[in-house]
């Protein structure tokens, strides 16, 4: 349903949507029911000629029922939500599958920088591809990201992944994703981080293995090749 408005491009995107819908349905049911009862009572007990208003303490059994029964039912709904939420939280945030590739993601005022492992597949080596505003990944591969912040708190948000993770200065936070769709999608910052927060946008490029290989080869900073991206080119010069 939500997918009609924002595509899903990660393995766990569907779980998050299902959870949001579950919460919306349960909470929505109670919202509508309460309003109906309230409005019904307002109409039923409106001012009538010759009837005096009563002071109700709500201590009698038949009155207390109106609170007690829904209360227990809402608790049951809460438990249902908690069971689903913990389950999904565990898959998305805690049970990280073994990575095929690890990238570094750095938030700063006001841009996202990315370190791709390059040809050797390892981070923090000569051939790392450092980029601002562009993250290139391969479809159907498990990625771990090491998330850092250079100055204040940011939040790495990829709407099509249904992924959001705070970046906290001084910490390296590991998370994961597996992309399921080719294409380029938005990356945002989801934590107010100063005057340029709203413009802290970047792009994620999800590529097929062949496309990705080509991109890596073209941007290898240790090769004096023609760079596809001017960003990569000027970063290569400082490596």
């Amino acid at each position: 349903m939500i997918e009609r408005y924002v595509e899903i491009a990660s393995t766990y995107g569907g779980n998050i949507d299902a959870l949001i819908l579950l919460i919306a349905a349960l909470v929505g049911f109670w919202l509508v029911l309460c309003e109906v009862v309230f409005i019904g009572f307002i109409i039923k007990f409106r001012e009538k000629p010759g009837v005096r208003g009563q002071y109700i303490t709500g201590e009698e059994k038949h009155q207390k029922r109106w609170i007690a029964i829904p209360h227990y039912l809402v608790l049951v709904c809460d438990i249902v939500i908690i069971v689903f939420a913990v389950n999904i939280w565990y898959t998305v945030k805690q049970d990280l599958p073994e990575p095929d590739v690890t990238v570094r993601i750095i938030g700063q005022q006001w841009a996202w920088s990315f370190v791709h492992p390059g040809t050797d597949g390892l981070l923090d080596t000569e051939d790392d591809i450092k980029m601002v505003d562009e993250l290139h990944v391969e479809k159907d591969k498990v990625y771990h990201f090491k998330l850092e912040a250079r100055d204040v708190m940011h939040s790495f948000s990829v709407p099509v992944f249904r992924l959001k993770q705070d970046a906290v200065p001084g910490r390296i936070i590991t998370g994961w994703f597996e992309a399921t769709k080719l294409g380029s999608f938005d990356i945002q910052c989801a934590e107010i981080c100063g005057i340029g927060h709203g413009m802290m946008a970047a792009k994620i490029f999800i590529e097929s293995p062949e496309e990705h290989q080509k991109w890596v080869a073209l941007n290898d900073p240790t090769e004096d090749s023609k760079h596809t991206s001017t960003v990569a080119a000027n970063n290569a010069a400082a490596n």
Binding site: W110, A111, K130, M131, R150, G196, N235, A238
Partner: peptide, 12 residues
């Protein structure tokens, strides 16, 4: 847009 251009990334 340079990876190490802290100040420039604020201005952009």
């Amino acid at each position: 847009t340079h990876f190490y251009d802290i100040a420039g990334m604020r201005m952009r």
